[in-house]
């Protein structure tokens, strides 16, 4: 194994860990601007994390070891996911270990642990949040799988790096199914990351919470890790979207050297800035739906993904 690939692999992981809070801060800033509020500074999430790491943990008496381990498991799974997703380069040693279906399994693992930890203390809100999270999760996962199948059909591979390589090899390939998959993906991204049509990330009302309700019992460094993990999750989802739909600029296997790395860095930065603004716009324009409407919302994204498959079969672009 070349040392450059190892360097790339760890570079990509470190970039993901470092940038994820910044991305969350950028979205918060855009939202504030669009809603005519004065925006928090970009580095606000980092300040939050530092403040939380400085504090002492207040732990419930009934907390089991599971409750204490969960933040580390969450953070670990999200970092591993960031290592698998080709956000900067496709030539990654880790990416060969797991394809996109295993990636979804990784996200599911994190979800199971977070839900168990939320129920561990035994408070009503934690249990409620965990149940809601599982409901959203079990509806969002098949939709996400269908979206990925759309891309898999195009290139006959379930690994994200080979999808990106395939796109780069056939830049003129435009398949109409991509539109359906992209719309469905944005819907799933919003639902999975506790964003506005399904969950309000900034709410203070426990009864409407989904994601936040599960974190109510966490404090200090545990809370910091969980928050950081959810920032990483959002970053990872955005990078999956980039790999599936706009893979321009990602350094491929054949590309070598500093220039390709710089191009991929710049491309990722531009895509994150645009995607963050777009997410903030969608969130500002949409109102939170009732929890019982959430299945309808996710069923729609599932149907769109299935439609994408159908459209591909009818008028899919033939691979050169």
């Amino acid at each position: 194994m070349k040392s450059i690939t190892v360097f790339r692999q760890f570079g990509e992981m470190l970039v993901a860990i470092a940038i994820a809070p910044l991305f969350a801060g950028w979205i918060a800033q855009c939202r504030a601007w669009m809603q005519n509020r004065s925006a928090p500074p970009l580095i606000q999430p980092y300040r939050m994390l530092r403040k939380l790491f400085d504090k002492d943990v207040a732990l419930a008496e009934t907390a089991s070891p599971l409750f204490r381990i969960t933040p580390y498991i969450l953070f670990g799974t999200m970092v591993l996911a960031a290592a698998i997703i080709p956000s900067l380069a496709t030539d990654l040693p880790f990416a060969r270990a797991a394809d996109a279906i295993a990636l979804i399994g990784l996200f599911a693992t994190a979800r199971v642990f977070l839900s168990l930890a939320a129920m561990d203390i035994g408070t009503a809100f934690g249990t409620m949040g965990a149940r809601r999270e599982m409901m959203i999760g079990f509806l969002a996962e098949p939709a996400l799988l269908m979206i990925l199948f759309n891309a898999f059909l195009l290139f006959g591979s379930t690994a994200l790096p080979s999808l990106v390589d395939g796109y780069r090899a056939h830049p003129s390939l435009m398949d109409p199914s991509i539109i359906f998959a992209a719309v469905a993906f944005v819907m799933v991204l919003l639902a999975e990351n506790a964003r506005l049509p399904i969950d309000n990330p900034t709410t203070h009302l426990e009864l409407t919470m989904i994601h936040e309700a599960m974190l109510l019992e966490y404090s200090a460094r545990h809370l910091a890790l969980v928050e950081w993990a959810s920032n990483l999750k959002l970053f990872n989802y955005a990078c999956i979207g980039f790999a599936l739909f706009i893979p321009w600029g990602i350094a491929t296997h054949s590309a070598d050297g500093v220039v390709a790395m710089l191009i991929s860095d710049a491309a990722l930065a531009i895509k994150l800035i645009v995607a963050g603004a777009a997410l903030a716009l969608i969130e500002s324009l949409s109102a939170k739906v009732r929890i019982f409407r959430a299945p309808e919302y996710l069923a729609m994204s599932f149907l769109l993904a299935v439609l994408g498959l159908l459209v591909h079969l009818l008028l899919g672009a033939k691979q050169a």
Binding site: M174, P176, S177, I179, M300, L303, L304, V311, L315, A317
Partner: peptide, 24 residues
């Protein structure tokens, strides 16, 4: 133009997408 048919396909897919959006 080499891109005519793919673009037309994309537009057709958009048309179908909008029909579904209207249903919802």
């Amino acid at each position: 133009m080499p891109y005519t048919v793919p673009i037309l396909n994309l537009l057709a897919a958009c048309l179908l997408l909008i029909s579904f959006a209207m249903l919802s």
